[in-house]
Write a protein that binds this DNA or RNA. Sequence first.
DNA 1: CCCCAACATGCAAATCATGCATATTGTATC
DNA 2: GATACAATATGCATGATTTGCATGTTGGGG
Lengths: 299, 299
Amino acid sequence: MRLEWLEDILAVAQTGSFSEAAERRHLTQSAFSRRIQNIEEQVGAELFDRSRKPVHLHDHVEAQRDQIAHVARLLRQLQADLRRGGRMAENKLILTSQHSLTTSLTPSIIREIGTRRRDIFIRLRSANLTDCFAQLLSRQAAILIVYRLPGQQHPILETYVESITLGSDRFIPVIAPDTPAARGAADALTDLPYVAYPADVFFGDVFERQILPKFRDPNSLAPKAETALTLASLEMAQMGVGVAWVPESLARPAILAGRLADLSDRLPHCALEVTGVRLVDDPTPVEAAVWEQLSAFRV
Amino acid sequence: MRLEWLEDILAVAQTGSFSEAAERRHLTQSAFSRRIQNIEEQVGAELFDRSRKPVHLHDHVEAQRDQIAHVARLLRQLQADLRRGGRMAENKLILTSQHSLTTSLTPSIIREIGTRRRDIFIRLRSANLTDCFAQLLSRQAAILIVYRLPGQQHPILETYVESITLGSDRFIPVIAPDTPAARGAADALTDLPYVAYPADVFFGDVFERQILPKFRDPNSLAPKAETALTLASLEMAQMGVGVAWVPESLARPAILAGRLADLSDRLPHCALEVTGVRLVDDPTPVEAAVWEQLSAFRV
DNA sequence: CCCCAACATGCAAATCATGCATATTGTATC
DNA sequence: GATACAATATGCATGATTTGCATGTTGGGG
């Protein structure tokens, strides 16, 4: 098994065609075709369904697609780590943040630490809340940056982790101005089209526990789409799908640019805390240093 | 990056020499030497220190050794999954158990399920308690089989997981008969030599909370060795290092064979529960079937 | 039923990996 | 330190693999 092969498979999965994948992989179509044959032979199974014309992945390969991408990432990371060698080995720290924070508040936090401690090398990962804690528990991450409802606990017994509040945010409803949905939202509060979150992700939970109860009639809401990613939700709001509840920090650029309107004066919203989390046992020197920097930090 | 390369690196790490590694990898020494050179070139860094004669890994490679082994496992697993193809795809389930259970009670549980539902394919992983829960949370495992102190909670908020008791076990002190340490244990209870667990593993916690308090004088215990693995602890006890506290199920074969003596009538011991754990959200059909089998099961 | 885009294959050139024989280099021993 | 020895590197010929180009084959839309 080779990283190359994984990348080949992913290229086909993404482009939906051997020829395009070949181009992306900087090979001729013929060479690529034979590479795929070789991969199938080495793996010992047919990976692609050629019976229909734009070839597509067999179901069982499609099912492994995330895993393939994941392992490919690990391999590239491993290679980078080996190449970088010992140069930064001791001062490396893995910080994982919730997807929605990765694109908004986390970068500034990391920039700040990077500015103050140039000798520390921070690797940022991104995951959903559950995976964040999984990474922390399995020590794949030293520190998490995640949202929490004020006054609530993290989904781990407090005896295992220690947390600090880094700042506050708000979970607010936004909508694209000048759309039918926006006018509807302005008028009556019936059948308000909105972008929902699945129940099993953090913001699905927040929505159900903090936002829904504040509606007099829960039926006045009409889910138009569902996504687990706040970024996708934000995007849908901008496309005019309906109202989306997202962290204010994430929506701010779009609001300032006029692409979204903040409806928190008319529709329910709630407060969010941005927190840093680490395991309670003895931290490495780098970890301690970063934690100290975080403690002095406020978003 | 290739699985082959990772295996080459690991072979060198394990054998401590290019020549031996070459043999293990079924290559001549010369070919292997050049493969290593090629790997280093491709990776873009020197991986081995040749300045001393049995070559050894550079520190930064040694530091990545676990990660290399981990990624290699993932790659092999991925290949196996792709090869097996869709054949068992639907009826596959990953079950992770605590190391100490993996070699004692878990196999019989899996055998039982395998007997009753021949169509279900169970993959067993093994990890320490923390990693078990990390795998569960990140959905790398569908079901866990882990120890728990009776009446205690799992280290995850109960709202996230559901658990059943599969049976009971005991955490008992054992010792190799006819050793100086054994005679010491029989006589006076002073400076009792024993095998300790680190504080941050499950049995370290159990020992500290359940066993230690039952000693009148905690100083009557003299730790002779420390290991995180119950199996290693068991082994040390058999070698005569001193008393080791281990799950009874794990020690039973050695006790029956006369290689170890059960001291639970004279020294503190405590009860353990063997539990099955899964996430509360909607299980797949296979998962539900296995859970049902488990519910009917008693060790 | 035909055509075209998508995929496969024959072939020769280039590249790469391997084994054998042999050179070089660390290290232990005297 | 000189010497012997074991570990690693290298020169070279050989065979396997990979690639591009040209061309063949096939599935699906019109």
